Amino acid sequence: MGQSITFHKADKLKPKPDGSKPLGFGKFFTDYMFEMDYSMEEGWHDARIVPYGPISLDPAATIFHYGQEVFEGMKAYRTEDKRILLFRPDKNMERMNQSCARLNIPEIDEQFVIKAIKQLVAIEEKWIPNEPGQSLYIRPFIIGTDPALGVHPSSTYKLLIILSPVGSYFGDSMSPVKIYVEDEYVRAVKGGVGYAKTSGNYAASLKAQTKSEELGFDQVLWLDGVEHKYIEEVGSMNIFFKIDDEVWTPALNGSILPGVTRASVIELLQHWGVTVKEKKISVNKLFKKAEKQQLKEVFGTGTAAVISPVGFLKWNDKVIKVANGKTGKLSQKLYDTLTGIQNGKIKDELHWIQEVKTDKQEGAKEKEEEKTATVE
């Protein structure tokens, strides 16, 4: 993978959305995107930042017919002192390579792609919103581009990175959501691609998601695909349960996405001395815990939502009202701490943050070094 990134300047820049108004999620896109190609002869090559716009693909391209694709979700945050921070980008790139391995896509140079992300974000720094709860969403993805039919891995690929200024995924970021436990459809099974971040997983979830919304719920909680009794994850989040003084979450089993926020929450809770158990959790056992008043809080975790408290859970004809339908103390503390670290308001004791340097900052640093050298 080459080490240089070329920059193609746009003739005209787009107007930026009004950050004082709700941005929604994934509705606006910045002026530029990153693009790079792969071939068996050259490997990953021709890294470039170009004006955002449509891409040209052959109608027979692999991605359209066989779904060979992986993606990631990350964010850049603006601090009060105008720094730009990324939250654990190394974990996202590590997971992207895990997804690539499962989808038979050539691995990426993780550090080079982080470099590309930082360079793209630095160019687009004016697109990073400043209002509370807002950030710049980063979507790297890889698609198979071979112009040929036939079930086989593509020999050519395209890696793209696009950026979108966003607000909270669920609107009011800490308003508890209503979750519907799905017992008819399944999303993934062990041995499949459930642990990979690939588009097929999300396509498989859409029917059940529509069903849950028609019933008045926000998201689907998936059960295991074999016995239909063990809790796995929510459509856009991993899931956690506070049982008395412990926190339980489904153990990674090959059909659950290993979320970066999930891992961060576990590490943070352990850092605080809270007992965390990664285990198989049956939905029946969970509802019995609720009946005994032992289920204190439920919350989801993910890059888009960060922490999303759950106020209601429905399974068959049973409905649980969690924490009286309000945000629990632990959920709020986790949200405040994670967003505080991401926004630079809380000390990063676990070394999760990477800073993006802009040209202005680099220029100021060079001038300071020149000044120091002159004095010496």
Rank of each mutant, 00 (worst) to 15 (best):
Gly2Thr: 13
Ile5Met: 03
Ile5Ala: 05
Phe7His: 07
Lys9Ser: 13
Gly19His: 06
Gly19Gln: 01
Lys21Ala: 08
Pro22Lys: 07
Phe25Pro: 02
Gly26Thr: 13
Met33Gly: 11
Asp37Tyr: 15
Asp37His: 14
Pro54Ala: 13
Leu57Val: 05
Asp58Val: 09
Phe64Tyr: 09
Phe71Met: 10
Met74His: 07
Asp90Met: 12
Glu94His: 14
Asn97Arg: 01
Cys100Val: 00
Glu107Ser: 15
Glu107Trp: 13
Ile108Asn: 06
Ile114Asp: 01
Gln119Lys: 14
Val121Lys: 01
Ile123Pro: 05
Ile123Lys: 05
Trp127Glu: 07
Gln134Asn: 06
Gly144Arg: 15
Thr145Arg: 15
Lys158Trp: 15
Ile161Leu: 10
Gly167Pro: 02
Gly171His: 01
Met174Ser: 05
Val177Trp: 00
Lys178Gly: 05
Val186Ser: 14
Ala188Leu: 09
Gly192Ala: 10
Thr210Cys: 10
Glu214Gln: 11
Leu215Phe: 03
Gln219Asp: 13
Leu221Pro: 01
Trp222Ile: 10
Gly225Trp: 07
Glu227Met: 09
Ile231Ser: 14
Glu232Cys: 12
Ser236Gly: 05
Asn238Met: 08
Phe241His: 04
Thr249Gln: 06
Pro250Leu: 12
Leu257Ala: 00
Leu257Gln: 00
Gly259Thr: 06
Glu267Asn: 14
Gln270Ser: 14
His271Leu: 06
His271Lys: 06
Val276His: 00
Val298Met: 08
Thr301Ser: 09
Val310Gln: 04
Val310Thr: 04
Ile341Tyr: 07
Gly344Thr: 09
Asp348Ile: 10
Gln354Arg: 13
Lys357Asp: 15
Glu369Met: 15
Val375Pro: 05
